Amino acid sequence: MIRLSELQVKEVISIVDGRRLGFIIDLDIDVKTGKIIALILADQENKSHMFGKTEEIRVLWQQILRIGSDVILVKEAYDQRTLMLP
């Protein structure tokens, strides 16, 4: 078993281009099953957007290839950025 606090200190890296995507700020969890649906990351490239909104990257649990001791390797799709209200 792994805790959220342990996941949050691991940097998420895309194997598509080696880009550092950032660190986990939240999780999407299916309340019916209790399973994690996606990791939510703050987008490092776009710190803030118009009207105080922050860009986020949503990485589906199925896209995780490996959770290592200090990084999480994922296969990222390019259309995963969404806006998150502060």
Rank of each mutant, 00 (worst) to 15 (best):
Y78H: 14
V9K: 05
S69L: 13
I36N: 06
D79A: 05
I57Y: 01
R3C: 12
L39Q: 01
G34N: 12
D43N: 04
T54A: 08
V59F: 02
R66T: 14
I2S: 08
R66C: 13
F51Q: 14
L41R: 02
Q80K: 13
L85E: 14
R58Q: 07
A42S: 11
L27D: 05
V71A: 13
V71N: 10
E55K: 15
I13G: 00
G22F: 03
L41V: 10
I2K: 05
R66M: 15
L65W: 12
K53V: 04
D28E: 14
E76I: 05
T54S: 05
D43W: 04
K32F: 12
Q44H: 06
I64V: 14
K75T: 14
K35P: 02
L39F: 07
N46A: 11
Q44D: 05
I40Y: 03
R20Y: 10
F51P: 06
H49I: 07
E76A: 09
V12G: 02
D79Y: 04
T82R: 13
I57P: 00
L21C: 02
Q8D: 03
L7N: 04
T33D: 03
Q8P: 12
E6M: 12
I36G: 14
D17L: 00
M50E: 10
F23G: 03
E55H: 11
N46K: 11
L27W: 04
I37H: 09
N46C: 10
V16D: 08
V31P: 08
K53D: 01
R3I: 11
K10L: 13
R58K: 12
D17Q: 00
I36R: 08
F51W: 12
F23K: 08
I72C: 01
E11N: 09
R19M: 01
M1F: 07
V9N: 14
I67E: 11
F23S: 01
K75A: 11
E55D: 03
S14K: 01
R20G: 06
G22P: 00
V31E: 12
I2E: 07
D79W: 06
L73G: 08
D30N: 03
I67Y: 02
D79N: 13
Q62R: 11
I40P: 01
D28F: 04
V12N: 00
D26N: 14
V59T: 02
N46M: 12
A42R: 06
G52W: 00
V31A: 15
R81W: 03
I13L: 03
L83Q: 04
D26L: 04
D28A: 09
S48K: 14
E11Y: 12
E55L: 09
L73Q: 12
S69C: 11
I64S: 06
G22I: 00
R20F: 10
E6P: 07
V74K: 01
E76C: 15
K75P: 05
Q8Y: 13
E6N: 10
D30T: 01
L41N: 04
E56T: 13
G34E: 11
L73K: 05
A42E: 07
M84E: 05
K47V: 01
S69N: 15
I24W: 00
L73D: 09
I25L: 08
K35G: 09
K32I: 15
G52S: 03
I29Y: 10
D70L: 10
